[in-house]
Structures are given as C-alpha cells and as structure tokens.
Nucleic acid binder design. Structure first.
Length: 674
DNA sequence: ATGCTATAGCTTTTT
DNA sequence: GCTATAGCAT
C-alpha cells in the first residue's frame, strides 16, 4: 500500500523540526519506519547517526521488526531503536566516569525503590502507605524537573516538603553509595550531564544526528529536556504524537510538551495524519464527536474510507454478574455465527478489579482468554531473589541486593550479625559485602554469625570470580549451590506453587543463557548487561507463541493503547467508573474522556458498550448513572438494548446458564461435523 | 510451623 | 463485599 499525501510529506520533510499529529490508527509506525528508510536511502544519513525513541520495550521491538522488513541488515547497522530509559542507560554506560559513577552500577526497579524509601523513613512515616506513595512521586517529580536534593530543600515551603526533601537527600546518598541508579536517574543523569558538559553534549549530538520520538505526548519534562539537548541547534528531528491519546498525565507525562515544541521551535513543521485505516466510519464518527468535547490546541478530524459499519450496541445489564453473563453470552453467539477467532475479541475496562467476573464467566464456559497486566514476571519474589544474587555478583556495593539475599535461603545470618556488619561497614565506609572480607571485622563479630557470614561471602566471591570467565556456568553453579529448589519447596504453600516458581527460575536461566551467548541478531552480553536489561524488563524474543494463541483479550483501557481488535466490548460505562469517581472529584474528566476515546478507537468492526443498573461497590449497592460519555455520543448510531424484564437473580442465573449451555452444545455439534 | 481472624484498602502503572 | 495480609493463637 502506498503512503497517503500527508504520510508522504511526513516522511520526506527532513530539513527541520517536525511534529506529526497522528490520530489513532493513522499509520504512524509506518511513517516512522518509512522515514528511517528515507533518511538512510535518500538523505545520505548513516544508520548509526539515527535514533528512534519509544516508551515501551514492546514498541521498540515492533519498530525494529518493521524496520528490518523494509531495510536490509547492512543498512540498519548501528541504528539505535530504544526506549528513553535504554538510551539514557547507553549514555551513562559510556560516560560513567564523567558522572562520577563506577562502571558496574546496578538498577533499582520501583519495588526496590519503595522498599528502600520505606526503610529510610521508618522513623517519620512509620510505613504509612499513602505518605510513602506521595513521597515516591514527589521525589520522582523533583527528578523529572531536574532538581537535586539541595534545590528541592530550597524550594520546599511546607514542613512536609522539607521532610520529603530531606528523605530525598538520604535516598539519593544511599543510591550513590551503593552504586545504584533508579529509573528516573536514567533520564536525569544524561540530561544534567549534557547540560553541564559541552564536550560530551557535542559528542552525542554528533553521534545522533537525526532523532525520532514516538508517543511524544507522553514525555515528561526531563525527557523533553533530553530531546532538546540531543538535537541541539540543528533541530533535525521528528516527534509523533496524539494529544487525544494522552492518558498518562497522572504519571508525569506532559501533553503540554506538544505546545512547548511549537514555542521552542518556531520553524516547526506540523503535519496531521487524519486518515484512519482501522475502524469503520461509524466508530470513527463516534470517537470524533466524543473527543470534540475536550479542549484542543491542534484541531484534527479523523476520517475513514472503510464502510460505515453496523450500529454501536449499548447493553444495559441489571448488575455486574449479569453484565459479565451478557457479554460472554453475546461473545459466544457472535463467535459461533461469524466463525471468528477468539483473539478477535477484546474486553476493555477501567480498573483491573473489573476483570474478575468476566474471567469467571469465561472460565465457566471454557473460553480461552488472556488477561494482560497483573503481576509481572519480574516482580515475582523468586525472580527478584535471583536477580539480587546477580546484582551482588556484578556490583559488590549493592547493599539492597545483598540484604535481600544474605539470609535467603536461610543460612543463620540473623539481624544481630547484620547489625554489627552494618556498623563496621559504616566505620570503614564500605559496602556490606566488601566489608565482610575485612580482617578487622573479627574484632566485632565472632562465633557462629561470623563463620556463617564469611562462609557465604567467600562462596559468593568465588562465584563472582568464576562469572568473569564463564558466566553461564557460574550462574548454574549458583542456583545449584543455593539449593534454591529445595528452598522453594520448603517455603511455598503447595508443591504445585513451588513447581511453578522453579519453572520461572528455569525460564529466567534459559533467557539469561541465550543473552550471555548472543545470537545472530544480538551480540553476546556481559552479566551486568543482562541484569540491567532484566530490570528494565527488556529481553529479546519473549515467549513468541504467546500472542499467537487464540484467546479473548482482557485488559485495562490503559493497556489497550496501541492495539486493535475487530470486536471490542467496552464494559462498565457508568458515572463513577468511566469517568472514574476520583477524576470527577479532581475535575479531571478530560483525561477520562481520552481514555474512552482510546477504547473506542481500538475497535475495527464492531463496538459494544455495557453498563449496569446496579453495581456493588465497596459492599454498598449503587445505582450508577450511565456514563456521560455515552450521552455525548451520536445517539443515531447507538442501539440501546435493555434486558426485557427484570427477573430474579435465581431465574436469571438458570436462564443464563441454560442459554450458554445451549450455545455450547451447538458449538460442540458444529465442531464434530467438521 | 500453621491456620485462623481481624483489619485495611480498593484507578490507571510504558521504565 | 471481597480479598490480601498481618498478627495472633494453637
């Protein structure tokens, strides 16, 4: 398929700063990949002088794959396609000396961060969860606004902010002492470095001569600052974004950066992509009319040349059980009649808790489904344990990792021993692990504690040495030497759970082995690199087959951004849920409207809304109003459908069950015939 | 250790 | 109202 005129223009405009306003489904990834190809083939750019930046590893992977389709291996050599955080990491890895870091730093994920802050603030906050969360986000905001602890303290007005700034200082010092960085540092440090150090900045500006940024509306202040510093006065860049799909402002994203861009770069070329290749005309019309209720800096109106499509259904259920029943019943019938794949359907909701009933109903009806979200693989305790071991191996200063694993599995190293080790390490100004080798330690620690501790640390040192020569064998020996499997069976609630967790460990090990060995696509990595990549949740070729399975997709509206499905159920269209009550209270309904907009524009062919007349919330029976967003939609294109009569819960259950049973039987029959 | 009861907390979560 | 977890009692 050829590019349309706007897409073509977006690809070919390379002489200055360029903003592409890409509506949902308007082919922005095509534009980015084609533009990379154009830069290399027509404009004489070498691949190694181009960088494309995304927000998620998934997006980066997809873009790499798309570029590989268009360009040959040779042409893409050195091309940098990465997330903001990976790009920052690359900079830090090369410039660690200028930043005053040691080479083998390790990374904190948000859990490590939360654990440390909890520990540091015990005397003031006493583990108060909401306070801790506020502290975490305050520190993150300070970092995103490029403020160090001193500046934060200076700017603090209230007592609370002064305390928070003090905690920020403690936190910051602790990270530096342990040679550890958190996620925000990956953006903050390069940005500060480029700001202060002209020589380094020019070197990187020379290395990255053309910059492309995806999902630009999601950038925060420090990310935008980093972009500006990287492109310099030359201002050769393309950013692609859609202010109507900005749904992460609660996480620091500044859609305002779209406006700032036209102020900071007056010569900015603004190109709108308004043709949608995804949805039927009716779905698009509904989306346009809904989002027109939001204020806009850049007006844009999507159109589609696909058919107008069928009416958008609105199903009103009696309560949330009934809602799940209706959706799953509808889905089974539709699947049966239209001979579709289960993976053609998505059920989208505002909050994770809404998935439960749909999950239950799908399970009862033996429909394969997949829920995205939930606890990530890398948040599981067994994985975090193992990564903590590897962090100690690669960064002897990482006290957090050391504390996590020093007595896991149990090896009789108790709090008393660690307390004394901590005091000694403080005196010597060393990390816990390195201090454990000091001869002077024997004056403070004795007996069982000392011998268990040293048995452990000496063993770890041996493994660390081995890891330098043969990392794969070292990790294997580590897992065996720990007898981690037995530990899992001892501590898990059931043998089955232990089995699952060991499977995860083995999965991690096999990924790690691949990454250490390298492949034809990827260079071999060092152990440090592997650990870092895992913390960034960025591994190559994840379980490929997972996405090919034929399963109904369940996910939050946030998680659905960037995806598309032929048939979409947008459930819980009620005031209080979508828009969410807290957003109504905070007068932030516009972002909720964008969330609804994102949901609607996921649908290709058919879109079904559902809502309940009654819903239990926190134990209380509510009678929610239909979402204002439903009322904002063009009513001529909606087909409201209400349950014909109100029946008792008992009857409804029986009727619903027998209806589903009936459909199942038909389905089975049809299968048998084939 | 293990299992029960009381209690809190309930929006989204790219890295 | 439900579920996860902490802390207590067995």
């Amino acid at each position: 398929m050829r590019l349309n005129p706007s897409q073509q223009h977006a690809v070919e405009f390379v002489t200055g700063p360029c903003l592409v306003l890409a509506g949902a489904g308007s082919g922005k990834t095509r534009v980015i990949t084609n533009k990379i190809a154009h830069l290399i083939r027509q404009c004489g750019y070498q691949a190694r002088h181009i960088a494309a930046v995304t927000f998620t590893n998934k997006a980066a992977r997809e873009m790499k794959a798309r570029v590989a389709q268009t360009l040959g291996r040779k042409e893409t050599r050195g091309l940098l396609i990465a997330t903001f955080h990976t790009l920052g990491l690359e900079v830090i890895k090369r410039e660690y000396a200028a930043l005053g870091m040691k080479a083998n730093f390790s990374l904190f994920d948000d859990q490590d961060q939360a654990a440390l802050l909890n520990e540091l603030t015990e005397t003031w906050l006493e583990g108060d969860k909401t306070q801790l969360q506020q502290l975490t986000s305050t520190i993150s905001n300070w970092k995103n606004d490029l403020m160090d602890p001193l500046q934060a303290a200076a700017s603090a007005q209230s007592e609370r902010d002064k305390l928070f700034a003090h905690c920020y200082g403690l936190y910051h010092d602790h990270l530096r002492a342990c040679n550890v960085l958190d996620f925000d540092d990956l953006i903050l440090l390069p940005t500060l470095l480029f700001k202060r150090n002209e020589e380094v900045r020019e070197r990187w500006q020379n290395r990255l001569r053309y910059l492309l940024v995806d999902e630009y509306q999601d950038t925060n202040t420090s990310q935008y600052e980093l972009i500006k510093l990287l492109v310099g006065a030359r201002a050769r860049f393309t950013v692609v974004g859609d202010d109507d799909q900005s749904i992460y402002s609660w996480r620091g994203a500044r859609p305002q950066n779209l406006v700032l861009l036209s102020q900071d770069f007056p010569q900015l070329e603004v190109i709108k992509l308004e043709q949608n290749y995804r949805s039927s005309g009716r779905i698009l019309k509904a989306a346009n009319i809904l989002i027109a209720n939001n204020p806009h800096v850049f007006e844009k109106k999507l159109f589609s040349e696909l058919g107008y499509g069928s009416e958008l259904k609105v199903i009103t259920a009696n309560n949330e059980d009934h809602e799940a029943e209706r959706v799953v019943g509808e889905l089974i019938a539709h699947h049966f009649i239209n001979k579709t794949q289960y993976s053609d359907y998505a059920i989208l909701y505002r909050g994770n808790h809404q998935s439960r009933l749909f999950e239950k109903m799908l399970m009862q009806n033996r429909i394969p489904y997949r829920i995205s979200g939930g606890t990530s693989f890398f948040s599981r305790p067994e994985i975090k344990d193992l990564l903590a071991y590897l962090r100690v191996l690669t960064n002897a200063d990482d006290d957090s990792a050391f504390l996590r694993i020093v007595n896991t599995p149990k090896r009789e190293i108790g709090p008393a021993t660690l307390q004394k080790l901590g005091e000694w390490a403080n005196v010597r100004n060393k990390s816990l692990f390195t201090a454990s080798f000091d001869l002077g330690l024997e004056a403070h620690l004795s007996g069982r504690g000392l011998s268990s501790l040293q048995r452990f640390t000496h063993w770890m040192r041996d493994i660390a040495q081995q890891a330098e020569r043969e990392p794969v064998a070292a990790v294997r020996d580590l897992i065996h030497g720990l007898d981690y499997e037995s530990w899992l069976y001892e501590t898990s609630t059931s043998p089955k759970a232990a089995e699952m967790r060991m499977k995860n460990v083995n999965q991690l090990f096999s990924w790690m082995t691949e990454m250490l060995a390298g492949s034809d696509l990827d260079e071999p990595m060092t152990l440090t690199q592997v650990v870092t990549r895992f913390t960034l949740r960025d591994m190559m070729e994840r379980g490929e087959n997972e996405e090919e399975l034929d399963q109904v997709q369940l996910m939050t509206l946030h998680a659905s951004k960037g995806l598309e499905f032929p048939y979409v159920y947008l459930v819980g269209m009620e005031e209080g849920l979508l828009p969410h009550q807290s957003s109504i209270d905070e007068d932030n309904v516009d972002e909720e409207r964008r969330l609804a907009y994102v949901g609607i524009t996921r649908a290709q062919r058919e879109l079904i809304f559902t809502l309940c007349k009654e819903r239990r919330q926190y134990g209380e029976l509510m009678r929610p109003e239909p979402s204002r967003f439903l009322l904002e939609l063009p009513q001529d294109d909606l087909q409201w459908e209400t349950a014909r009569k109100v029946v008792s819960a008992q009857e409804r259950m029986q009727k619903g069950q027998s209806h589903l049973a009936n459909l199942r039987a038909q389905l089975a029959q049809a299968r048998d015939k084939e």
